[in-house]
C-alpha cells in the first residue's frame, strides 16, 4: 500500500550536515517533496516534506529518523490574520464554514476565533485586502 504524508522534521545541530534525506531515498525508496526548509547555523534545521512510498518503507523510515535523533511531527497548517491589514469589512464571514470569523455586534469588528479555525483556507482568497494567510 502506497501512502503520502506531510511531516515536519526538526534536525538538532549535530545532524544538520548529515545526508538524512538521501538515506530516505536510497534505503527506504521514498519520494520526497520539500515544502519548506530552513537551517540556522549552530541551531536546528526545520524541513517540511511530503514523503510518499510504500507504507512499510515509510514506517521504517520514520523509525530510522527518530532513531537518528530527528524530531518528527505531523504537519498542521495554521491560518493567521495579518492584524494590520484586516479592515474588518466582514467579507470573510460567510466564507468560513465553521463560524471562526464572526462580526462582533458590539464593536462591529470581525473576531477571528482561532480555536474554531480548521485551517481549510476558504477565507484566504475571498479576503479583499488579503489579510488571511496560511502559515506552515
Amino acid at each position: 500500500m502506497n501512502i503520502a504524508r506531510k511531516i515536519v522534521l526538526r534536525f538538532p545541530p549535530r545532524l544538520v550536515d548529515q545526508p538524512i534525506i538521501y538515506r530516505l531515498v536510497k534505503d527506504y525508496d521514498l519520494q520526497f517533496n520539500i515544502l519548506k526548509a530552513s537551517i540556522t547555523p549552530n541551531e536546528e534545521g526545520i524541513l517540511v516534506v511530503e514523503l510518499s512510498g510504500k507504507k512499510k518503507d515509510y514506517d521504517e523510515a520514520i523509525r530510522f529518523l527518530a532513531g537518528a535523533g530527528v524530531e518528527v511531527q505531523a504537519l498542521i497548517k495554521d491560518v493567521a490574520r495579518l492584524e494590520d491589514r484586516c479592515t474588518h469589512c466582514g467579507a470573510c464571514v460567510t466564507m468560513c464554514p465553521v463560524g471562526a470569523l464572526v462580526v462582533n455586534t458590539q464593536t462591529r469588528q470581525v473576531d477571528f476565533l482561532e480555536s474554531k479555525c480548521i485551517a481549510c483556507g476558504l477565507c484566504i482568497k475571498p479576503c479583499p485586502v488579503r489579510a488571511m494567510e496560511v502559515r506552515l
Binding site: A91, T94, V103, R108
Partner: peptide, 22 residues
Amino acid sequence: KSGKIKVQGKDVPTASLSSYAR
C-alpha cells in the same frame, strides 16, 4: 447588519464589503 436576511423564503447569511468599524 443582523447577519441574516430572508430571500425567497430562505435564510441567507450576509457579509459586508464595506467596513462599518472603519
